[in-house]
Each structure stands twice: as structure tokens, then as C-alpha cells.
Amino acid sequence: MAKVFIIAEQRDGRLKKATLELVSYSSTQGNETHVILLGDNVAGLAGELGQYGAKVVHLAQAPELKLYSAEATSRVVTEVVRAHAADIVLASHTPTGRDFMPRVAGRLGVGLASDCTQLTFQGTDLQVRRPVYAGKALAEVEFVGPGPRLATVRANSLGAPKPEPGRTAEVVNLTLNLSGLKTRVLEVAQGNTGRPDVTEASIVVSGGRSLKNAENFKMLEEVADVLGAAVGASRAAVDAGYRPHRDQVGQTGKVVSPTLYVACGISGAIQHLAGMRTSKVIVAINSDPEAPIFQVADYGIVGDLFQVVPALAQEFKKVKEH
């Protein structure tokens, strides 16, 4: 059993699913699970963390922590982890987790394994597996020298988090020193569409060059909205201006690992596969039976997406209705 510290991620007072996934997994693996929660007025979230298995929530609240910054976060996390002699420190490999964790590792003088898709706890030690070369190989990674062991974990890799109503966490309020910060987050401009981000969604519906224009992506949005899914795109679709770059899946876009990935009119170039091959179930819809995407697909439909996708929207609606 290890003393595991997890850095919670919240935006606008809501915990990220990826955080709950880490807390739930660590706790079901029998670890003494601590959570470090940073923000302003976020004490209310401790109860939810408790339900997912946190034993202790270390609460860092300050106006300077209202908006995330790597500098303030890494400073607080390093102090807590040191003070409690943590064995293992985990964060999600999100734009936030991946940003501050290296600084914590550097300050502690220990190793960090990023973007892990598998964690194995062995007493107080940790072994991890992570994709390298854009998923073309998998590496078993071990830590060298003394701990704590640090890792960031790809969202959706550890299984769905399970709450246990009735469980609660002890809450510890931290005393903070946040003077002399060299960075300041001025604002967060929402670019949001109401749909989840491709890296966070459990289902991603993606389209390629063959969608022909931005307008036709509405077809995919319709399917996505029935499923609460994100809409992704190939680089060809992004380069053609059908979707913004933030939706691009692949080696020079986002790496996603949803439970379901639906590729519509995407050929399956090696750089695209790099971004989605760890998805649990892959569906390919393509008019070319020889398209490489079918080699990684669990379910394949050879057909015209302009006919199949609207039919699919209707069928998903039926399932969702009962």
C-alpha cells in the first residue's frame, strides 16, 4: 500500500472526470489516497472527492489560485508532497497536469513518467506503461533512484470512476505562501462550443477531408450531440479549414483515448492512427474497402458516409430514447 497524492483539477468549480478516475483507481487499488485541491472557494468539492475514494483532501484556497498557474500549483504541490513524504504523486496528462508536473519533479529531483496508460502499484513503488513514437510502441518505464514516483496519466485509461455514496474525506486546510510569483493568468477566454473536448470525451466522432466542407460537419455534430460526444477531425480536414486545429486528432494534434472512436471518411494515415489507436472501440466508415483505417477498426462499414452518418444519427437517437 502506497501513500498516493493526486492533484485535483477543476475548472469553474467543477471537478474533471479525469481527476475522479485517478482517485477512484488509486483507492480501489488499496492505496492511502490523498488529494490536493487548489482553487478559490472550492471546499465544496471535497465531499465528491471523498465519495470517489479520497481519504484526505488537502485544501489550498486563495484568490491567486482561482485561475490555474503552473508556478503557484507546482509550489503548493511540492510543499505538500514533501511535508507528507508521499510515495507516489499523480496528475492527469491534461493541459494542466502536463504543464506543472515537470516542475514538481525538477524541484524534488525525481523522475516523472508522462502520459501513462497503465499504472502498476507494487508496495510503495510504481511501474508504468506509456505509448511512445505516437503509439507505434509501448514502453515499460521504471524509476531510478529514490522516490517519490511521479506520473501523469492519459484520461480514460484507468476505467470509469465509481462513487460510493456515504464515504467522506478528512479535509486539511493548507497555509500558503504565494508571494513573489513571476507569472500571472490574466483571463481565460472561453472558446467553447458546449461540446466536450476531444481529449476528455468518452466518445469522439471524427471526420476527414471527404466531408468536403465545414457545413457538412453538422452531420457529425448531430451524431455527437445525441451521444454527448466530441467532434474530432483529421489534419486534412483541419488544413482545409473545416475545423479548428484544436479538434485535430493525431501526431500533430490531440491524442485521444475514448471508449468509442468513430472515424468517418478518414483514410487512417499513420499520423492519424497515432492520435487514436488506444481508443477502446474503433468504428470506421469509409467508401474504400482498402482504407488503412479498417486495419484498426473493431467495426467497419464500407459505404458512403453521406448516407450512413444520417442513418446512424437516427439509430443512436432510438437507443438513447429508451
Binding site: 514502453a139 479498417f294 477498426a297 467497419g300 462499414i301
Partner: peptide, 18 residues
């Protein structure tokens, strides 16, 4: 601080259902 103990290629995917 970290070392690759071993590498493996991703297991080939079983042929999907058409």
C-alpha cells in the same frame, strides 16, 4: 531518473467485423 525497461510493439488488432 526514468528508464525504459522494455519496449513492445502494440499487439496486432484482430480483424474487425465488417
Amino acid at each position: 531518473k526514468i528508464r525504459i525497461k522494455s519496449l513492445q510493439l502494440p499487439p496486432p488488432k484482430q480483424a474487425g467485423k465488417k
